[in-house]
Structures are given as C-alpha cells and as structure tokens.
Amino acid sequence: METLMAYVIGTMFGSAVYMLLRRSIVKLVIGLMILSNAANLLIFTVAGLVRGAPPLITEGLLEPATAITDPLPQALVLTAIVISFGVLSFSVVLIHRAYEVVGTDDLDKMKDTDT
C-alpha cells in the first residue's frame, strides 16, 4: 500500500504545484490546500502503514500487548493538520482583503508594492 500511496502523493504534490503556479489568486489557495494534505500524507505514509493497530493501551495493561503502529508521526501530523488549517484560514482572509484593496485577482498585477 505504501508504494501505491507514493504515486498518489506524487500526483497530489504535482497538482498542488501546478495550482500554485496559476495567476488566479483563488487557485493559489486551492494549491495550498492540496499541498498541506499531501505533506501530511507523506509524513504519515513514510512512517509505515499498519492496519488495525492503533497506538492505544488496553485497560489494565501498562504497555500495549501487541505491536502497534508508530505514534510519533501521528502526533506530528496531528499538529500539522491544525497548523495548516490556521495557515489556510489566514491566507484565505488575506487574499480576500488583498482583492478588496487591490481590485484584482491576477497575481501578475500584484507585483509592485504600491499597487
């Protein structure tokens, strides 16, 4: 499954880059979203995909009885999901505001500091 995910994630990264390179500012946001999802999946996948072994400790035991999946990447990805939400909401509002002030959604026209 990891190998298949490598192709899926590659596709997501490629698409994200393509969207980031558009001139429309709305597409930039969309690219950003795909990029953060792809990055989270990347970290999650390279740590190894294990079915049905969540990092939980059964009631009454001090340690998990059976082998479990690595909890550390999950903790990292959890943080990343929340942060990327923060970044996304900030950038969406920023872009909204920039559009209001500058009056265009074309990134090529936003190239000077005094537009």
């Binding site: 490598a6 590659g10 990264f13 490629g14 001139r23 709305v26």
Partner: peptide, 25 residues
Amino acid sequence: YSHYSKGYQVWRDSTVAVLFGLLVT
C-alpha cells in the same frame, strides 16, 4: 475562477509540476 495563463505558460507550469510530483514519488 479566472483563466489568465497563456498556452505556453500552461505547458511550462505543467512540466514543473510533473517533475516535482515525480521527484516526490
């Protein structure tokens, strides 16, 4: 959902995107 890019820009950006996706894979 504006489409500003011209033909050759689409091709250039696609190439960059495909190369990057390939690198990640």
